[in-house]
């Protein structure tokens, strides 16, 4: 696995709270090749955002702490990396797109200044050249009148437009990997599709890899090649995207797919939206065995006894369920 762009092994990130240590990420393996799109799915609190932020060490430490594991970026372990090295990697090698485009831009500067600032942190070029680069980036992400709009302030842009600006900013230093943390959650549906199309287009044009964090299965289907499903801080399933939708192996993944609202059925059959019963277990003291067992219809005694290992049951398909073969 040495040649991979990003290779995370056994990552554990815990947070100290007044009640004890929260095991937010508890042994996650994840790897990504150059030019590939990997999607990480899971509900709120499954640890997907923490995993993403830990790659760039954007979590607050303390209270956060990387307890174990390695994050190999092109073979270099980022866990012990110094802050200066991390600053260098941020945006120059790995770009990051946030969930909230409405508040992720500084209100007191024009968008051009903000993009130019990012560029100038990593490249020694003049202010003027950086502003030109900013305008170039804005037109790349299809903002009309880019050369004029660089002089506008964030409040003069709509949500979708601001997310385009954020993408332009993340792309401005030609990173090899873009981490997008729920980039479309805060946007309405038509704009979501535009932003996902834009991400796909940028990926194809610039040949970078994308790590897409999301809780929407629809977003996964539209963009990713490979999917990792996370539950309660752990990976429960990993599969190519078609295989995952065709034949989900883990009961949790099955539940997730069943709970996608379907307009075609709802109109004719008056079916209620299916939900997974129960809630995510407390990560302060996670259960001994399978963390999904309490909400799982297939759970047996053995499930609660010991944590199920993440097994590779077909090439590229891994699942952490001891009954995967029977129930799929």
């Amino acid at each position: 696995m040495a040649g991979r762009l990003l290779n995370i092994q056994g990552l554990k990130v815990h947070f100290k709270t007044d009640d004890g240590w929260v095991h937010a990420v508890d042994g996650v393996d994840l790897s990504l090749d150059a030019g590939e799109t990997l999607s990480v799915v899971g509900e709120s609190g499954s640890g997907k955002t923490v995993t993403a932020k830990t790659i760039l060490k954007l979590i607050d430490m303390p209270p956060g702490r990387i307890m174990d594991g390695s994050i190999l970026w092109q073979g270099e372990d980022l866990v012990p990396a110094r802050p200066e090295r991390m600053r260098d990697i941020r945006s120059k090698e790995i770009g990051f797109i946030f969930q909230e485009p409405m508040t992720s831009l500084n209100p007191v500067y024009t968008v051009g200044e903000q993009i130019a600032e990012t560029v100038r942190q990593h490249q020694r070029i003049s202010r003027k050249a950086a502003m030109e680069r900013a305008a170039e980036m804005l037109s790349l992400v299809h903002i009309p009148n880019a050369s004029r709009r660089v002089h506008d302030y964030p409040h003069q842009f709509s949500g979708g437009m601001r997310q385009r600006v954020m993408i332009a900013m993340a792309l401005s230093c030609d990173p090899k990997l873009i981490i997008a943390d729920e980039p479309t959650t805060a946007l309405d549906v038509t704009i979501q599709a535009q932003i996902l199309d834009l991400l796909n287009e940028m990926k194809e044009r610039l040949g970078m890899a994308v790590l897409l964090i999301t809780h929407a299965m629809g977003v996964v289907a539209e963009t990713a090649q490979r999917v990792i499903v996370m539950y309660a801080g752990q990976v429960v399933e990993e599969a190519p995207v078609e295989a995952l939708f065709d034949r989900p192996l883990h009961p949790y993944t099955q539940g997730l797919i069943r709970s996608i609202p379907r307009l075609d059925l709802a109109a004719t059959e008056h079916r209620r939206l299916e939900a997974i019963p129960g809630t995510v277990p407390s990560l302060l003291s996670p259960p001994q065995g399978c963390r999904f067992a309490a909400r799982c219809g297939y759970a047996i005694e053995a499930c609660r006894a010991a944590p199920p290992p993440l097994r590779e049951i077909a090439p590229g398909r891994k699942v952490a369920c001891i009954r995967a073969e029977e129930i799929a």
Binding site: L58, R87, I89, S104
Partner: peptide, 26 residues
């Protein structure tokens, strides 16, 4: 704690830069 400060950090801004360029003017 604002997102744009975190965003600037994610894009490689140093601590001094965060304070001087992003927090103080606001």
């Amino acid at each position: 704690e604002k997102e744009f400060v975190e965003a600037a950090r994610a894009l490689g801004a140093s601590r001094a830069r965060l304070v001087w360029r992003h927090i103080l003017p606001n």
